[in-house]
Design a protein around this nucleic acid. Structure first.
Lengths: 203, 203, 203, 203
DNA sequence: CGTTAACCGAGACGGTACGTCTGGTCTTTAA
DNA sequence: TTAAAGACCAGACGTACCGTCTCGGTTAACG
């Protein structure tokens, strides 16, 4: 009856978990290069085939791990966009910083461009990874975009402002510093950034 | 006598050129991965030793190539920041798009995140590349920052606006789309972006 | 009552046949290596479990297949040993030749050492296969040995000749050429061989 | 001047030796299967590339090792073919027996069919190995064939006897027992064999 | 007629070796 | 000293295949 009746031995959910756990640990300990699939399999006590059946490529595996590192940042409109955005951007920066611990002490400041850049590169290498990564960010950003809509309805931001563009400017600035110019991203910068984007630093 | 008197056979300047040419060609043809140092050496008809004497790493070589791909965008204050910025950002987008041809047809729209992301990753891997890349962008951006200063003096933009932050927002939005969300970057978007950043879309 | 009373579902005889058929076909088509158990199972539309329940090893399966390829060569003493032996050896050579089609065109002439050698190797790897293979040949050769006995009784061959040794010489020469030196085995050679073993080429 | 002037770093002869030594040791210790190229490389303290540059396949490597195991059996006509052949065949049998130690205790008697069969199989798998193996035996057998010629000239064997066929019978019988029937090959058998082939056991 | 034992198809799993690829270093001979 | 050529080390990659295990489900014979 059920067209999707499963046949054959089902995949071991435990294996999934053990692999991702091992991969995460190794990624943090070693960084992207010096991270080897063989080693993950060994650490997870899983055959390489089992791993490759799930993630067909080192890149796919790493993206899965990074996706799991993403933490949910609760976003709720409080009536004060400026505060909300500041909080949110600081959370993102903190997340990036935490990822930054991966591998050797990074050159640029103290956050890790490395892992983010590698994921971006992987997204460009494999179409499917690109789709997954983009979808991940779309989902993540959707909440903030809604928040911005609400703020506009409440008159906190002008009717001419496009939430999407505004958000690109904010998040973009952070990633730009992280990946391209390597300038530091601290709370003070986030404040200046939000102020710059929302207009007058006062009020 | 002369402490830095050179002895032995002098380095062939022609080799430098042949290597970079071959590397560029291969990079465009293949993309970052599938780009191999051996192949560059073979194509340039140069020994690997000769190549490594000049660029100590695949990453170093690629950064050198990418640096050469960067074209000088003339930036001059015309009295109309909006127009100047729009022109500049479109030039950047065009440059990225041109790079985008490298390798297989990329997933995300038609510009290539790949190469840019790889360079960012390389910058994170090697401190010296990081320094070089960041310096490159500082130099490139300095002109625009001066332009923004001039615009502020002319009253085109408010005294509270920080040029650095403003520029991060603009360039950042573009790179964010390119690398992270994969959304398209066209002239219309640049217009909306500049409008958003400089205030009212009108005027 | 019956100690070997079978319970449960009986084995499918049809499965046996389908497996052997598929295996044979694949063996001829591909040769020993490039012959994979998975593929046999797939082709026979049978689960691997079903296959392994019958033949515990790739080697066991192949030996079973090869055993089935062996054809019964009728051996009857006609009163002329020379003719009988010639006929028999030619039949063996033809059989080997037929097997020889298995896999890629072999290097050595046109008969296939490959499969025979693999079976010999399998016989060395697993004691039980060794026993089976040796038994198979003992059975096959018994008829010829009896024929030689009869010939001796009839005075066609001297009383000092040991049938076993004589047969080793004849069959041995053929297999030696097949497996070791790769020289061709044709009717002319068989004639020379029999002549050499039975004494004068004349008569 | 010299058209075949070698350029580039020459191959390390020491590496060759270390690889073959390690392979030989491992082969004797483990047998054909359970013999792994990786392990050879590790034991020889050589990169896998270095190994594969010389022997493109596990089979090629093993054949090279086996070729080195072959020992030169001095063959000189003493005026007594029977004695000469007996000595030679016993030497061959001893050699096979020595090889037989390779790997697990073999099933069939006490000599190892295994390795010989595997080499024969390899010869069938790869045309080049086939050629090499056949050439090896041709070279080895040439001496004995000349001995037989001399014996014929001396009238020890009849003019109608073809040395090639005679030798096939002798060597063939031994390999046939080794590989196919698994019957033992001892000095007594060799005596019977020679007697059978050269005519009357007497004289 | 239900229980039960052995089967069947499907496919995941552990294990392990293979041969390939690539980055960077080292060793030659020639200029 | 540099150049060209190519061997060298190191080590990861992804694939292949064997033989085992785990599912859901089927098919006799037994009780």
């Amino acid at each position: 009856m059920d067209p999707k009746a499963r046949r054959g031995r089902p995949r071991s959910g435990e294996a999934d978990a053990r692999i991702i756990d091992a991969a995460l640990e190794l990624l943090l300990e070693r960084g992207y290069d010096r991270f080897s699939v063989d080693e993950v399999a060994a650490k997870a006590e899983v055959a390489k085939t089992t791993l490759y059946r799930r993630w067909s490529t080192k890149d796919h595996l790493i993206v899965a791990v990074v996706a799991r590192m993403q933490d949910e940042v609760p976003v709720e409109y409080s009536g004060d966009v400026r505060a909300d955005l500041t909080r949110y951007l600081n959370a993102i920066a903190a997340g990036l910083h935490r990822m930054g611990q991966a591998g050797r002490p990074t050159a640029s400041g103290d956050t890790s461009a490395g892992l983010v850049a590698e994921v971006a590169a992987a997204a460009a290498r494999h179409a499917d990874i690109g789709a997954a990564v983009h979808a991940m960010f779309v989902r993540r950003n959707a909440l903030v975009l809604r928040l911005l809509e609400q703020a506009r309805e409440h008159g906190e931001i002008g009717p001419g402002v496009e939430p999407e563009v505004l958000f690109d400017q904010l998040a973009g600035a952070i990633y730009y510093r992280l990946l391209i110019t390597g300038r530091p991203i601290d709370a003070a910068y986030v404040d200046r950034l939000v102020a710059g984007a929302l207009g007058g630093s006062a009020a």
